[in-house]
């Protein structure tokens, strides 16, 4: 019984069903874990791996410089920025807003720098449901290529204080 000490040598061969099950489970696990590195070579959806440290002041300065250069309008009090696909794009998370509203072109790849100037936030593009973490003091470099057009929302999905549920930003893809 499993509540008594087994006697003697218990290193004994397996029964047939155990053996088959063990091999099936092992093979399936091999498939599942080989998928991860392989997907980095053959897939086009992978978690980005480039990141840097950045101070809140430096990041705010980059956001301001971008707004001066590329602002094309205003929506609900937020500047609408239409960046050049060849240059880095900056998106700031703070309590409780995403700045600026980005206007991106479909099927162009952008290098988007994500950072927070206060707390940890969660970057969640809806309705396509693409989720990343945004950490204060860290710049996360995301190579993003919108493959559908329309109006998208950025929700915050990491708790960031009592206004957390109002933290909604916008991306327009044209």
């Amino acid at each position: 019984m499993a509540i008594h000490e087994p006697q003697g040598n218990w290193w004994q061969p397996l029964s047939k069903d155990e053996k088959i099950w063990f091999i099936l489970a092992l093979v399936w696990m091999l498939v599942s874990f080989l998928y991860m590195p392989i997907q980095h070579f053959i897939g086009v959806q992978n978690p980005p791996s480039e990141s840097y440290r950045v101070s809140a002041e430096d990041f705010e300065a980059l956001i301001e410089a971008q707004e001066e250069k590329y602002t094309v309008g205003e929506e609900n009090g937020f500047p609408v920025v239409r960046p050049n696909p060849d240059e880095p794009v900056y998106l700031k998370a703070s309590m409780w807003e995403w700045t600026p509203v980005l206007e991106l072109e479909k099927d162009k790849t952008y290098k988007i720098h994500l950072s927070s100037v206060d707390l940890v936030h969660g970057f969640s593009i809806q309705p396509i449901n693409l989720n990343l973490m945004v950490i204060p003091g860290i710049d996360y470099v995301v190579n993003l290529k919108p493959t559908s057009s329309g109006d998208f929302r950025i929700l915050c999905n990491e708790f960031c204080g009592l206004g957390h549920h109002t933290m909604v930003g916008k991306i327009n893809v044209i």
Binding site: S51, Y52, R53, V54, D58, L62, H113, I138, D139
Partner: peptide, 13 residues
Amino acid sequence: GLYEVYTLPYLPI
């Protein structure tokens, strides 16, 4: 993990 946290370079601006 901690090694990666504390060796992260600063953003080249």
